[in-house]
Design a protein around this nucleic acid. Structure first.
Lengths: 119, 119
DNA sequence: TTTCATACTCACTTTTTTGTTAGTACCATA
DNA sequence: TATGGTACTAACAAAAAAGTGAGTATGAAA
């Protein structure tokens, strides 16, 4: 994965706001193209294998999916469960912290649906 | 403002998910570094002038602030109120649609605060 | 006549995110 | 011995987001 430039204004701003503001913090955990949808699928289906996620996330590339799963895992929102089998089998599920987002995700989804035809 | 490439995979994916999923839609309205904080300040302080917003959004550049205000305005989340004075005076406030995000923003803020010391 | 304050605009560069393509390891089965 | 399925990895390229620094219009006040 690319490393961020520690001393760019961009990352200084990001750091400042994450530290001073919870809402920026949560955005950084669930923001971007794919993460929030991964969370929603896991919320609805409890456990999903890597390939099952991939099928649902229409258009996602291997690289992005893996990268986002790793971020979610290291942020403590999902668990990665490895089965010692061949061919490999890996499942993903929400952690308790991940599940605690349920209410917010549901409300966001609802608001989004209600406001779909924007512009 | 830079124009997006209509036919990049990136924007095809973005379009697909916006159209198929409310939660992606809402993320595109409030995501990024600055927009959600603009909304929160306007939620708390009702009306703010351009310069007042600028002071609160520590680190923001003129370009980003204007760009994000324009996006929020064209997405129907804020109103821009121009006073015919010199020097110019412009105020920003939430629209009804913008205000309807209050509950979600508050919950996000709360979750974020509760989960600040991540990792 | 110069300075000042406000709310911008513009051309450009850097940084970050996202996507592409071609791999790998493992063993089971054909 | 070759093929297949799963869950990845890694080098590279394109696109998008964010930031920089200088400039504009207006009329009032010094």
């Amino acid at each position: 994965m690319k490393s961020r430039k520690e001393h760019s204004t961009n990352s200084i701003n990001e750091k400042y706001w994450k530290e001073h503001c919870g809402i920026t913090q949560i955005l950084s955990l669930i923001g971007g193209r794919w993460k929030i949808n991964i969370l929603v699928y896991l919320l609805n289906e409890k456990k999903l294998r890597y390939n099952e996620l991939k099928k649902r996330l229409v258009g996602v590339s291997e690289r992005m999916l893996i990268a986002k799963l790793k971020e979610l895992e290291s942020d403590g929102l999902i668990n990665r469960i490895v089965y010692q089998e061949v061919p490999p089998k890996v499942e993903y599920e929400l952690t308790e912290r991940g599940k605690s987002l349920e209410d917010i995700l549901n409300r966001m989804e609802k608001w989004g649906e209600a406001n779909l035809p924007v512009k």
